[in-house]
Design a binder for these strands. Sequence first.
DNA 1: AAACAAGTTGCAATCGATTGCATTTTGAAA
DNA 2: TTTCAAAATGCAATCGATTGCAACTTGTTT
Lengths: 346, 346
Amino acid sequence: MNTKPETTIHDIARELDVSASTVSRALKNNPLISEKTREKIKQVAIEMGYRPNVVASNLRTRRTNTLGVIVPLINRHFFSSVISGVEEVAYKAGFAVTISQSNDDFQKESQIAQALFASRVDGVILSASMETITSQHLNLFTDRNIPLVFFDRVLDDVAANKIVVDDFRGGLLATRHLIEQGCRHIAHIGGPLNLAIYRDRLNGYLKALSQAGLQPLPEGVLHNRLTRSDGDEAIRQLMKLPQLPDAIFCANDTTALSVIIYLRQQKIRIPEDVALVGFSNEPFSEVVSPALSTIKQPGYEMGLKAAELIIRQINGELSANDFTTYVMPTELIIRESSLHQGVVIA
Amino acid sequence: MNTKPETTIHDIARELDVSASTVSRALKNNPLISEKTREKIKQVAIEMGYRPNVVASNLRTRRTNTLGVIVPLINRHFFSSVISGVEEVAYKAGFAVTISQSNDDFQKESQIAQALFASRVDGVILSASMETITSQHLNLFTDRNIPLVFFDRVLDDVAANKIVVDDFRGGLLATRHLIEQGCRHIAHIGGPLNLAIYRDRLNGYLKALSQAGLQPLPEGVLHNRLTRSDGDEAIRQLMKLPQLPDAIFCANDTTALSVIIYLRQQKIRIPEDVALVGFSNEPFSEVVSPALSTIKQPGYEMGLKAAELIIRQINGELSANDFTTYVMPTELIIRESSLHQGVVIA
DNA sequence: AAACAAGTTGCAATCGATTGCATTTTGAAA
DNA sequence: TTTCAAAATGCAATCGATTGCAACTTGTTT
């Protein structure tokens, strides 16, 4: 009933009257070992139900073949897509993936970093919390040359490979599109400005406006943590302004959804009275009514890339002090929420 | 520029002229060590930037403080919610969480099991793939008393703690509700019958019908893997039947969404012509148009429970051969897609 | 047959922490 | 001061795999 005893290389060695080193080498297909003994050893290993003890191996080799991933919230489509991509690549390369969520709490992010460091992951893939301003908590990794790859919510002051979408262009395209629809009083619900992605989206928005000779809506540029309730609060605030917005560019789909729900309640028409563009292309965006225009972010592909990069860094295939920021393409998806011609899904 | 050398307990021991055992005990707050030396040791440990080598500790203690989680698809709201719950509890208890996805592929599920086994996770939380029929691949764990907890897609023939929702009751409530709305020709798009949850949902559906003296729609009970395209195919098939359905109970929201989109295209009204109930309460269900009636599944809470159970098993707090199936409550959420009175969101 | 290189295998230390048991120290009682 | 239990510390083996170096087998070449 209890655990059957584990077979070790020593047991196999004893069985065949060879040394443990020979067994170790044979199982690793080391060419030093003759084919004959190698085959025999492998045979016996199977018969004895041997499983290598990776923990012992890890101790000796100082590698864990484990990647740490820190995201704000696992349970969020964009992030779970990235994780899915990371897992896919990591699995094929023989790495395990350890996931932790910061809940957008800097304190927890730091503690997770500690924990991952203590557990000696070989590399860390990270998207920062909404609260993250400093990067000292990551010195643990940078100090010891433990590879670090950022995605989406990257930190400017850390030298590392980074994967982002073209947030500036996203903001630009979204806003320009709204302008083309005839909107002139365009508000923006943005994220915290300590994070580059939200600065970039904001700047894209500002650029599109200035290119069209327009001003941002006075008091109409808000910044919060972009949750459902933040969005709710923001839209209430916007609808109290002396000059009402005729369009809103939201820095994520979640707040755009809050806007849709609130406006629907208030019988304010979308897009006729207020046009709307979000960011991220969450699954609900396509099916919400009205369908939400948004900027597509290739989460899964970003995950693939992040994993590829970190594994190459771990394997020393990438220069250790020459980092690149990979900009993935964004795409504006135009749906009902911003279409003034008013095409309705057939 | 390169990695600074690691401090070990031996370094600390040498520094203070004590033995490594003393250091080890002191750092673990072992009462054998006097408070005075304990304090001194901790002090020096901090000064020297000591970090315990968990790998060495794991080797010695034969524990990894790691939980393995296998889900069909990370990037799916229900599953990522469960993972989120697992992570929450695990983190607090000092466990790392390793995630893998089977992509609903039995082959991959088996390989993941192998990998988790090899990496010596302390316990495994699992929701089976659509293809999983046998459970031999899990003998690895059961043979060696490695705790296993199933959730949602459980396997009948494995003795383990299991967490499910009341799928039978879900199917019953959903179907009964459709009957109460006046529907008489109710179809069902279900999942593979090798999985108990889909059998239960089907049986709930059948029970509700028979209680009302109704028959299942002839040729109107389909089984597939419940993807978007499966749903698409299924609804096309149903709409070719001699007796058209006036309602459909879908075993998940994904296929229900396929149905909504197809019927919308065909200008078939929901719920007037065909009423609809899904299962799982995905985030899009609330906002799709028409809003989808569905059965709520408490994913996050299931994750919390799964983690709690497996950790208690690992710690030997639970009898090792006395297993329970925990049935979480389901709740019918009634929305537009099944409301014949036709209340529209205000 | 001697000599030597190439091909195989083994020895033993190492990775760092843990722990049963032995030993030493401390302090109080006799 | 002696005695002895209690308290504190150290010894050394252990967890299982890896690897530089030494040692031993082959087989080939003069």
